[in-house]
Amino acid sequence: MYKFIKFIKRSSLIAAIALIASISAHAKMPILKGIGGDFTLNSSKGKQVSLSDFRGKVVLMFFGYTNCADICPTTMAHVAQMVKKLSPEQQAKVQVLFVSIDSEYDTPKHLNKYLSYFDPSFIGLVDDKEKIDHVAKLYSAEYSKLADERVTTEFKKLSLEDKNAPKKKGYLFSHTAKIFVIDGKGRMRGYFYTGTPLKEMRDDVTQLLATSK
């Protein structure tokens, strides 16, 4: 029992330290160790892309899929709005990457059309599932495919009623809400979320660009 209390005490201390760290992290975006790393994937621009191609740029990376109705387009529109608020010089030093977790459906061409709609400079990455899984693991970007029973049944019913209805099973993904912020040296510096205010994102990106010179 005593051990347990000690454990609680210790963990609350750790939690407090973590809290302080996260507060100062917000102010300075320190280098996050033990997460991230370089990778190479097929891109929506028609050739392979490595994270190291973007040295000197702030990279904002998001994991999603194009058949996602709500969060993915909301996030892309949100990030696009933030990028528009940057100066042209800053814009040239920011790269948005959208890693598709739906390698079965999202082709590079489809991703390009999708992302160009938000901002032509955005690059989509899609590759064999194993390669995507590897990147997801590097960044602890958990995701999983949910075979949704109701959606599946609904789609089956539809394809019976209408020959033109999609034959594919209905599916939904569960995925991380984070936008990974990577500095000009390929180091993880923090996270944004769909709800992060535009000004806060812009201030952090501006600061990262200023300090990485």
Binding site: C68, D148, V151, E154, A177, K178
Partner: peptide, 18 residues
């Protein structure tokens, strides 16, 4: 065709559910 959905955030993961 329109379905009613909800985005749910759980343990840092987002998912949409009908």
């Amino acid at each position: 065709r329109i379905e009613l959905h909800q985005t749910i955030m759980k343990n840092g993961l987002m998912r949409m559910t009908p």
